[in-house]
Design a binder for these strands. Structure first.
Length: 386
DNA sequence: TATACGTGGGA
DNA sequence: TTCCCAAGTAT
């Protein structure tokens, strides 16, 4: 970094003026309250802002304070997060809220080191909160800042490698405004998404084009340097939609670790791609496909349909099998643990599933279970929506 | 350091 | 259809 002090000042001024005139009106930009900034930053990780807004509004209504979040019901919290993805964010949020309540007396820590120590908060989020809420001159290095910075300085380092962070930190640390660090960071983020976009950057109207090495060389699209992602692993599953005589479906809670942790789903069993093809072509279900834990006497299985669900790292091909229980069939009570429930599902209120505890209609609970992405698609398929 | 971890939108 | 992208973190 060989920019003069004067050039840095001009850069800050040009960016902040642009930000003042063009910043996105976001719900969490009406405050610098660390709790709200924190929640908005966690929700925004790897997620588009437009998607976040309604989730943020609902979240603030339900958990207005760090204390309320620290005491949140796990299932309700996950239900609120349903559809946002990366569900460990929600779990970590509650853990961090408890840390704030217990270790910081409910007051959000005001220095980078302590903010960074909170569960689920990494270098980006810590710097974002520190700069926006506490005016600390920390560069909040996210994908936008890396793209913008790599173009300005024509940096050849691969932004998908964690070791590159240091390079961006060194450059940005000299640039960040000490007067308005939060606006500086958010200005660069908005610029990255509105102007300095990945595919078609609007360099002609960019307030920073005169500082940009890539513009000078006409090499905007050469930056940032980024290695390609690997393809998703393909997996094949049968899903069993078991319905009892009351019209309820049988759901299980997924394990507390790994993919879609603690989300609810029909029982799934993995199968080979060969068996998968066999079922979807002729609808024949071979004898070795059985639903776990259930007696085969009750199973009258019927192929219902199939669909695909794509995660960031896996591609699921799912065959949905409808299992109609006999008139008097009921799953033995001992099998109905806290992780296995009969659920009444009203297709007219997607996601408004109601749990019928103890199979007693008079004791219907209003508890709503968080459904995994594939599970929502399964209910939609049963409704013939897809 | 590389990989696991979701979902929806746009070209 | 397929691929890339979007305010990253934990391990």
């Amino acid at each position: 970094m060989d920019w003069s002090k004067n050039k840095i000042k001009e850069f800050q001024k040009d960016l902040l003026s642009w930000y003042d005139a063009n910043k996105k009106p976001l719900p969490w930009r009406q405050t610098t309250e660390p709790y709200k900034i924190w929640i908005s930053e966690i929700m925004s990780q790897q997620t588009q802002v437009e998607t976040v807004i309604p989730y943020f509004e609902r979240f603030m209504k339900k958990y207005p304070t760090v204390e309320s979040l620290a005491q949140a019901d796990d299932t309700e919290l996950l239900k609120l997060w349903e559809g946002l993805g990366y569900y460990s964010r929600a779990r970590n949020l509650k853990i961090a809220a408890q840390e704030v309540v217990n270790e910081y007396n409910g007051k959000f820590p005001d220095n980078l080191k302590e903010i960074l120590s909170l569960r689920g908060i990494g270098p980006y989020t810590a710097a974002a909160i520190a700069s926006i809420s506490f005016d600390l001159a920390e560069p909040a290095i996210d994908g936008n800042l890396m793209r913008v910075t790599s173009r300005i300085f024509e940096l050849e380092c691969d932004i998908s490698k964690s070791s590159s962070r240091k390079i961006f930190d060194e450059h940005l640390r000299t640039l960040v405004s000490k007067k308005r660090p939060g606006d500086f960071n958010q200005g660069l983020m908005d610029l990255g998404s509105l102007v300095c976009s990945p595919k078609k950057p609007k360099c002609e109207t960019c307030p920073l084009n005169k500082y940009c090495g890539a513009v000078a060389d006409g090499k905007q699209l050469n930056y940032p340097v980024k290695t390609k992602k690997l393809k998703q692993k393909e997996l094949y599953y049968t899903a069993f939609a078991l319905e009892n005589s009351l019209g309820e479906y049988y759901l299980e809670k997924r394990p507390s670790k790994g993919l879609l942790a603690d989300m609810w789903t029909f029982p799934l069993t993995e199968l080979s791609s060969v068996d998968f093809e066999k079922i979807i072509t002729d609808g024949a279900i071979s004898k070795n496909i059985t639903m776990p834990e259930l007696p085969e006497s009750i199973s009258k299985m019927e192929y219902f349909g199939n669909f695909t669900h794509i995660f960031s790292h896996q591609k699921w091909h799912i065959v949905l099998i409808k299992v109609k229980a006999e008139e008097k069939f009921e799953i033995a009570d001992e099998l109905l643990t806290a992780d296995k429930k009969w659920v009444y599902y009203d297709s007219k209120k997607l996601g408004e599933n109601v749990v019928n505890l103890n199979q007693d209609l008079s004791k219907i609970s209003r508890l709503k279970l968080p459904l995994s992405g594939p599970q929502v698609k399964m209910f939609e398929l049963l409704d013939k929506k897809i």
